[in-house]
């Protein structure tokens, strides 16, 4: 009998955990200040800024190294992350990415925002949205590898350390998004 009540309690616990009332997001400036503090802490202690695409990149190299190790050793771009005995996941940026997933989950859980759902514009279906999300992810990460960093690794971290190249990348990202926004307005409006 005790196991049954335990199970009930457990279910109740998870139900309560995932059915919290959805709270408002932070004020944008508050979010910016806290993000700036996180960024500063990272640079201050480790000398490195934040990043996201680098972690994904190493994850891909890791999988490739399992599936086709010989191939990894022949592609120059992959050699330096996973060539030979190297473990692609043995790098700090991977832990930032894993942390970002955990941190996002904790925040979402605390504020009742962990929900299986799809956000999309009113004129498209869920399936269309998923398709475009996939294509967008493909394009963004291809561009991020080309530019040696994404919004976090280049624009945010390089922006705060006043790297000239990072400011160029930043303007290109936002410029590109505004440039193509009209063409893809049906996706969102």
């Amino acid at each position: 009998m005790t196991t049954a009540t335990e199970a009930q309690n457990k279910e109740g616990f998870f139900k309560r955990l995932f059915n919290r009332p959805e709270k408002e997001y932070w004020n944008a400036y508050t979010g910016g200040i806290v993000l700036g503090l996180v960024l500063f802490t990272s640079i201050f202690i480790t000398g490195n800024g934040l990043g996201a695409s680098g972690g994904l990149s190493r994850f891909v190299a890791f999988i490739e190294d399992i599936v086709a190790p010989g191939h990894v050793d022949r592609v120059p771009y992959l050699i330096k992350t996973a060539g030979g005995e190297l473990n692609a996941l043995d790098n700090w940026i991977v832990f930032i990415s894993i942390g970002a997933i955990i941190g996002g989950f904790i925040s979402g859980l605390r504020n009742g925002r962990v929900k299986l759902e799809t956000h999309k514009g009113p004129k498209i279906t869920n399936k269309q949205r998923w398709f475009y999300a996939f294509v967008g992810g493909f394009l963004f990460s291809y561009g991020a590898r080309l530019a040696r960093g994404c919004t976090s690794g280049q624009a945010l971290s390089g922006g705060a350390t006043l790297s000239a190249g990072s400011w160029a990348v930043m303007f290109a990202i936002f410029g590109g998004a505004y440039l193509f926004a009209y063409a893809f307005r049906k996706l969102w409006n």
Binding site: L50, G51, A52, S53, L56, S97, A100, I101, G103, G104, F105, S107, G108, H119, Y132, A133, F134, V135, G136, G137, F138, L139, F140, S141, Y142, G143, A144, R145, L146, A147, R148, C150, T151, S152, Q154, G165, S166, A168, V169, M170, F171, A172, I173, F174, G175, G176, A177, Y178, L179, F180, A181, F184, L187, W188
Partner: peptide
């Protein structure tokens, strides 16, 4: 490579609705 990569990222941003960091959350 930074500028062209940035423009491609911009297009990916508007098509996909995220950037890599935000997509993780």
């Amino acid at each position: 490579s930074g500028v062209i990569g940035g423009l491609v990222m911009g297009m990916g941003f508007i098509v996909g609705g995220f950037c890599p960091g935000t997509s993780l959350t």
